[in-house]
Amino acid sequence: MKYQMTLDYTIPFGDLQPYFDALRDGQALASKCDSCGIVAFPARTNCASCRDASMQWTPLTGTAHVLFRTDANGGSYALVKFDGADTTSTVALKNPENNTTIGTLVAPIGDAPGLWLTLIDTENEEHDGH
């Protein structure tokens, strides 16, 4: 038989709502552990290092360095380190035709609150900066 079911979820993000609100605006909002100071991005509700549950919000610049990237049928993704974060993050690459290794967080593409990175031309950045 053929059977089709459409599901329409409403998902509250609870204590992580500020992280997702910032992400929707293209802003990187990390969590910082009150106890050991580890900065996690994506944000967490407890510390992955010392397990303390007392966290503060801390904004990041949104700039990230690519550690590894993969080009897949459905898109390109990377493991990146955001400046100011102690953890690394998996992101989707908005402009995978660019092979540079520095990017900036941008507002998610589509309805899903994913992490999207625009790769930037570092040579031009450095030239412009001088």
């Binding site: 994506p42 590894f68 459905g74 898109g75 992490l115």
Partner: peptide, 26 residues
């Protein structure tokens, strides 16, 4: 994986394994 982060980003299983494999190879 983490449906709120990796899942919402759209990264699939093979891509995550591919990133991990690259780190292993390096």
């Amino acid at each position: 994986f983490d449906a709120w982060t990796d899942g919402m980003t759209g990264i699939d299983s093979t891509s995550l394994y591919a990133l991990s494999a690259q780190a292993f190879m390096a």
